[in-house]
């Protein structure tokens, strides 16, 4: 009985923190100015939120079922960076990035330098 209450509280804390993280991600998605900045808010707090929610769920489940959740978070952690990287790169190249919001841009300096030298912009 007492053990059940502890589990409930732990689970609730994790679930609420996870939900909060997802909410903050959603707010960032609405409020931030350009694509790469929104990308940060859209992908990362979501990953953390999912992680927390899965932990909160796992403490309430049997061990067998909880093991499957490990796979969910693992695949999320492996696939999310790939996608965000491709999107960010395309955003920079197609100019959906708001350059006025950049404090420093050392990549632009390098690309300009290369354009002057006549060399190809470094791929990959």
């Amino acid at each position: 009985m007492n053990g059940g209450t502890v589990t409930d509280v732990v689970s609730a804390v994790f679930l609420l923190l996870g939900a909060l993280s997802c909410l903050l991600g959603a707010l960032g998605l609405v409020r931030l100015p350009d694509l790469p900045a929104r990308l940060q808010a859209a992908t990362k707090p979501q990953t953390l939120g999912l992680l927390l929610i899965l932990v909160g769920t796992a403490v309430r489940l049997d061990f067998e079922n909880a093991a499957t959740l490990v796979l969910v978070i693992l695949f999320q952690a492996v696939t999310a960076p790939v996608i965000s990287q491709i999107v960010a790169r395309s955003a920079y190249r197609t100019g959906t990035l708001d350059r006025r919001a950049l404090v420093v841009d050392e990549l632009a300096e390098r690309m300009e330098h290369e354009a002057r030298e006549g060399g190809p912009a470094g791929r990959k």
């Binding site: 100015p33 950049l102 404090v103 841009d105 990549l107």
Partner: peptide
Amino acid sequence: GPRAQAGIVA
């Protein structure tokens, strides 16, 4: 929010 700043660092 909308005035968030960022940078690209080598």
